[in-house]
């Protein structure tokens, strides 16, 4: 299914996975969301979004290395799949084309 519709939160998570690669896992995504977007989202929500995206084959995951800051527990690292990349790229180009049609003159003119 090429034009898979996803929610804006899912879209942001997809983008963050791309941006944070190769160190994208639930907690870094959450931190990044807080730092960049100022949105405080529960780990459980991020986890659920990741789980769903992986089920739709937009992401793939592998178990990554453990670090002492997480009590020696390993993490699940996420990566965009080709399909996932396609989805965000489609959204991006769609938005770009819309932005191209917006002109400030038309919006604020007193016609």
């Amino acid at each position: 299914m090429e034009n898979q519709s996803i929610s804006s939160q899912e879209e942001i998570v997809l983008l963050l996975v791309g941006a944070l690669a190769p160190n994208a896992y639930a907690y870094t995504i959450k931190k990044e969301m807080l730092d960049q977007g100022g949105k405080n989202i529960a780990l459980a929500s991020i986890h659920t979004i990741l789980y769903r995206l992986e089920k739709h084959n937009l992401l793939k995951s592998s178990m990554g290395g453990a670090s002492s800051s997480r009590g020696g527990r390993s993490k699940r690292l996420y990566q965009l799949t080709m399909k996932g990349y396609k989805v965000v790229e489609d959204i991006h180009s769609f938005r770009n084309s819309l932005w191209g049609k917006i002109s400030l003159d038309n919006i604020f003119s007193n016609s």
């Binding site: 896992y25 639930a26 907690y27 959450k30 931190k31 780990l43 986890h47 178990m63 453990a66 800051s69 997480r70 009590g71 527990r73 390993s74 993490k75 699940r76």
Partner: peptide
């Protein structure tokens, strides 16, 4: 267990 507790723990110490 592993991945979620790991995330939770990392956040807790942060």
């Amino acid at each position: 267990h592993d991945e979620i507790l790991g995330d939770l723990e990392e956040q807790y110490f942060d």
